Simulated assay, not measured.
Amino acid sequence: MGGAMALTLAALAYPSMLGLNTVSSSQTRIVANTQWGPLTEQDRDFVVKVRAAGLWEYPLGQIGLQKGSSPGVKEASKHLIDGHAALDASCRKIAPMLNITIPNVASPQQEGFVTQLKGETGKAFDTDFANILRMTHGSIFNAIAKIRSTTKNSLIRSLADQANDTVLDHMTVMEKTGLVDFDQTIFQQTTPPKLPSDNLTPPAPDPGQPQVVLTPPPNATSTPLAIPGEPGSNSTREDPAPAEPSPTPTIG
């Protein structure tokens, strides 16, 4: 519903480039003035990036629970599912409030990571799982700090706070696997390949397409944002609602 509404606003046209190594030439341009403060291009793109991250890392967490051959990888997989389900709920909540169109699938680059790991088993899977996810989380961790320190929009600040906690947790559990090659990972994080923009951009959803929902695990510990003024809301995070198991969401 929110995505369909946002598609009608030309001022908030779907971001053209959202990859790890993409920098917009007009990130500070204000695209909307909202009751929560001005919304810039980089604010809008941040919401899309957080949503896109969950669309590949959440299913990869499910894959890791099935294919991971070490306790560390299985534990990290649980954190991916738990954390990204809550972040995704926050993105789906604030996107229609800010008239932001969010994707239903990740970027081709991100989907490529999933395809690669689906084809691996054993130690190779565990090692690439830990290193790819430590690299991607390290990349967005820096972006979160920039958003949090510069945005004038209170909803974006709240999302950045949640994303910071979640991404730091995910970086930490990847490191605890003992499989991260820091020299290689940090090099790839700071010197990403120059890929075409269409490889880095999650496609915009088709009008009327049902929104993909990342269902929290039954024992969820992470909670979505609670927006001030919502019924029953008196804090910055929601109390977790009981979640029922659901099939793996269709991504793509």
Rank of each mutant, 00 (worst) to 15 (best):
E175N: 10
E175Q: 14
K176N: 12
T177Y: 00
T177W: 00
T177L: 00
T177V: 02
T177N: 00
T177G: 00
G178M: 04
G178Q: 07
G178T: 08
G178W: 07
G178S: 04
G178I: 07
G178D: 08
L179Y: 04
L179A: 04
V180A: 00
V180D: 00
V180P: 00
D181Q: 02
D181G: 05
D181P: 03
D181F: 04
D181W: 01
D181T: 03
F182T: 09
F182P: 13
D183S: 12
D183M: 10
D183A: 15
D183P: 00
Q184S: 15
Q184E: 15
Q184G: 14
Q184N: 15
Q184V: 09
T185V: 14
T185M: 04
T185L: 03
T185S: 14
I186S: 10
I186N: 15
I186M: 13
I186L: 15
I186G: 03
I186V: 15
I186D: 11
F187D: 13
F187Y: 14
F187T: 13
F187R: 08
Q188T: 03
Q188P: 00
Q188C: 05
Q189I: 12
Q189L: 06
T190N: 09
T190R: 06
T190Y: 03
T191V: 09
T191C: 02
T191Q: 06
P192C: 08
P192A: 07
P192T: 05
P192F: 05
P192G: 10
P192R: 03
P193K: 03
P193V: 04
P193E: 04
P193L: 05
P193D: 11
K194N: 15
K194P: 08
K194Q: 15
K194A: 15
K194Y: 14
K194S: 13
L195F: 14
L195P: 01
L195E: 07
P196R: 11
P196G: 06
P196F: 12
S197R: 11
S197N: 14
S197K: 06
D198G: 01
D198T: 05
D198F: 13
D198W: 11
D198K: 10
D198E: 09
N199F: 14
N199I: 14
N199R: 13
N199K: 13
N199G: 03
L200I: 02
L200T: 01
L200K: 00
T201L: 13
P202T: 04
P202D: 02
P202F: 01
P202M: 02
P203D: 11
P203C: 05
P203Q: 13
P203K: 15
P203A: 12
P205S: 10
P205M: 07
P205Q: 06
P205Y: 06
P205D: 04
P205I: 07
D206E: 12
D206N: 04
D206V: 05
D206L: 08
D206G: 03
P207G: 05
P207V: 11
P207C: 08
P207T: 08
P207Q: 11
P207L: 07
P207A: 11
G208S: 12
G208L: 12
G208E: 05
G208Q: 09
G208D: 12
Q209N: 02
Q209E: 09
Q209A: 09
Q209F: 02
Q209L: 01
Q209R: 03
Q209G: 01
